[in-house]
Design a protein around this nucleic acid. Structure first.
Lengths: 122, 122
DNA sequence: ATCGTCGCTCGGATATTCGAAGCAGCTTGG
DNA sequence: CCAAGCTGCTTCGAATATCCGAGCGACGAT
């Protein structure tokens, strides 16, 4: 061990910081994706817009309050839009924005990975 | 009412099951990725194995207790391995397994998305 | 011996999520 | 008409998850 570990160059350089290995961008992304249902909600919107109850059912296992929260978050972040269809029957529809759509390839990749490596348990 | 679903057939199609719009696989994946730091931890391990403190610093903002928890989770799920290097200096090293490595393309995709669509706000 | 680092664990605050219930408006239907 | 079901949420209390700081044993350097 003598030769090698004496110095520690791994990720601190004299100048200062900003040596974030894990990608600051990745970290930023996971401030959203790391919330319990955000990823799944986005995935449910992948193929088509949907209403509140529709999402609730499609996702399964999420509570109304949380879904409402997630939807607000996502809308606030500009990943989805909430559209109210007046008419009489008063329907609401959530859909992906461009920013949200741009995330779909990543989600598909994850889905693929899950299908191959996480089939149903480990 | 117009359109669809006149009767209460939410979204079951005749063929069989798997009508889960959001992809069951995606949902499964987000049982891990949806936990607050899991994605970032994996991302930090992308290029090279690392020790506990090293990860703690590289990630920044995570507490020891949570990091420890995440590491256990990930190890339990078979995405990373914990290797103890005896010697005297007693070092521990966490590294991705094959399963974990297989997830990297997806993470890169997410990172890319974040760089383009999530540059700096909030 | 004293200090600093590494790899964790423990305890207690604080934030997040859950699950059920409630409310208003519209629709079916008896 | 009025019960009963649907949709789109909101509120509440309780369970969980996460955060933060402190501490412990082992080791190396000073």
């Amino acid at each position: 061990m003598d030769g090698m570990a004496t110095t520690r160059q791994p990720n601190l350089d004299a100048a200062g910081e900003a040596c974030v290995r894990g990608d600051a961008a990745l970290a930023r992304a996971f401030e959203f994706l790391g919330k319990r249902w955000n990823g799944v909600v986005l995935g449910s919107l992948r193929d088509a817009p949907a209403g509140f109850r529709e999402l609730s059912r499609a996702i399964g296992g999420i509570s109304d309050s949380v879904l409402s929260d997630r939807l607000s978050d996502l809308a606030g972040a500009g990943l989805i839009v909430r559209t109210v269809c007046e008419g009489p029957p008063l329907a609401v529809s959530y859909a992906l924005t461009d920013r949200g759509k741009a995330l779909m390839p990543a989600l598909e990749q994850i889905s693929l990975w899950a299908q191959e490596h996480l089939l149903q348990d480990e």
